[in-house]
Every structure is written in structure tokens, then in C-alpha cells.
Design a protein around this nucleic acid. Structure first.
Lengths: 148, 148
DNA sequence: ATGAAATTTTAGGCGCAACTAAAATTTCTC
DNA sequence: GAGAAATTTTAGTTGCGCCTAAAATTTCAT
């Protein structure tokens, strides 16, 4: 039922999860600190610095970011759009789950895994759902009792 | 923020997504036809038959199924439990999304991607949510209007 | 029961995305 | 501004999970 794994990232195709993780992380760093250095990307993703160089070179070749040796990286418009999408999906999922009493670590793991697989359509639904939970604490309460 | 990719499947560790896809597919075949042949597994997963042999050998070594050369495969209790878990997560996600007007193809793709990343806690929440939607068509209607 | 067809296995290979170790470059400190 | 420290890059390696082609085995039809 699943596709033969996301292989070759032809330009225009959907980035792999790993690529999305990089883009997300890079945008977050840029927003937080104004720049994205390899050492911080590596720390945030929990991988070795050399792996970052490697991947950022590929992402540059694919037009998702601009990479200059020994200088930091910046996102291209395409890359930034993708990064914003991932962050948006991440945030909605986290907001949705936080309505219930799920530990943050679990929320983090689940969201991290799911955020790469949500279509625009599903995102819209989850957004509506989350906003309904925001404005209807009774609903949240009813659900929480059902859960336990 | 993400882990260094799911590498070595040490016994007792969480199976990779690919492994879960195999287990899910195998259990479905066994339920449907009484047995699981490589040719059907390959067709269902959209991969080559040789890849199935390869993976089933690994899954046997890991104790998730029993593999006998030129004979089919059967799930061990561990493998079957895992397969049931995946199918359960799959079904809940699909039921949840089907409450809205999302095309089946999109539901299929999203579920296929997300089903590997849902914890027990989150599963419980999504189940409660789905059952609430089952019994409250007004809520569904309200959400559907918000979405469009 | 034998030969053709289907299925399964073996063998070798590939791309992705990680790793380590060592070399190159930049940045900080005095 | 020289040297130490930090960072980045290069080079080479690994495991996963897929591939194709060819060989082995089983199954099916006559």
C-alpha cells in the first residue's frame, strides 16, 4: 500500500521527512537568532555537524536554501514556504493534542512523526477541530472523561 | 529535534515504518485469504518481490514473523500484536477523517503516513474524538462549515 | 508425470542520510 | 596580530530498504 519509499528528490517533488526537518529547524533558528549555523542545526536535530554540511549542500542543489562555504545558510522562497508549512502543521497538531492530558514528551514525539504527512485538506480539518476545542471547554471536558 | 533516524532494529525496540507496513499488510492478507504470499505482499506494498524475501528474512530474525523458504510467512504473537496496533491506528485515523469531505485518496495517503507515529495516549484521544463525532452530527456539521 | 508458467530466492547494486576522523577555515582571546 | 579554540568541510564508511537480473523451486496444465 505504501509507495516505494521517497527516493530521488527531483526538483518539484515533495521533500523527504529529513529535508523537512532541516528546513523547519533552519527557519526556527533564523527566527530565533537571526541566522542558522551548522552547529546549532546539528544540536537541534540531534545529529553530527558533518551530516549537516552534507545535507545543506543537497538542499542548496535542490533550490531549497542557499549555502556558502563557511558561511551560514539562508532559505530560498521555496524553502521558506515549505518550512512554514511544516511549522504550521506542527503547531496545529501540538495545539490539538495539548487540549488533553498528554505529556509533552509524547506530544513532541507524535507531532514530530505526524507533521510530515498531513495534506492541506486534513490540515484544514484539524485546524477547525482545534479551534472548536479552543472555544468549547465543555467538549474538551466530555472528551477527557471518555478518555480516562 | 528529531532522532538520528530509526536505525538498527534491536529486539524489543520499535519497528521502523517499513516493518510496520509489512506486518500490517501480512495480517490483512492472512485475514482476507488465510495466507500471505510474497507476490501479494509485494503487490500490496507496491514493491518488488525480491524485496519482500529480503525483509521477511529480517523480520524472521527479529522474531516478528516466521519464514520458511518457498513457504509463506506467519506472524508470531509479537508480530501480530504490532500488526493489530498499526491497523487500529490506521482505522481510527481513517474514521476520524472520513467525517469530513476529504477525498479517499488523500485520506489514504495521510493515514498511511501518520499511522506509524501515534502513541497509545494520542490514540485514546483520537478514538474519543472520533466516537464523539460519530454520535454528534451537529458537531460534524459545525466543523464542516468552518472548514469550507 | 513432464514441461511450461508462476513464484521465490540469491546475488549484486544503488541512493539516502546518518556516522567518525582528520583537514581546513574562521573566530575568539590575549 | 598570533595562537588557541571553535566551527566547518572533506573523505571514507555504514545500515536500511529498495532495485534488477538470473537461478532455484514450486505449481499448474496436459
Amino acid at each position: 500500500m505504501s509507495s516505494p519509499s521517497l527516493s530521488a528528490h527531483s526538483p518539484g517533488s515533495t521533500p523527504t521527512s529529513a529535508r523537512e526537518d532541516y528546513l523547519e529547524c533552519i527557519l526556527q533558528l533564523i527566527q530565533q537568532k537571526g541566522y542558522a549555523r551548522a552547529v546549532d542545526i546539528a544540536a537541534n536535530l540531534g545529529i553530527a555537524q558533518a551530516s549537516v554540511t552534507n545535507m545543506t549542500q543537497r538542499l542548496d542543489a535542490e533550490g531549497l536554501l542557499r549555502y556558502e562555504k563557511y558561511r551560514g545558510v539562508t532559505l530560498t522562497p521555496t524553502g521558506e514556504k515549505l518550512a512554514r508549512g511544516v511549522i504550521q502543521r506542527h503547531d496545529i497538531l501540538a495545539r490539538l493534542l495539548r487540549h488533553f492530558e498528554i505529556d509533552e514528551a509524547t506530544i513532541h514525539r507524535d507531532v514530530e512523526g505526524m507533521e510530515h504527512h498531513i495534506s492541506r485538506q486534513t490540515l484544514r480539518v484539524l485546524t477547525a477541530l482545534t479551534e472548536e476545542l479552543d472555544r468549547s471547554p465543555e467538549l474538551v471536558e466530555r472528551l477527557k472523561t471518555t478518555v480516562k
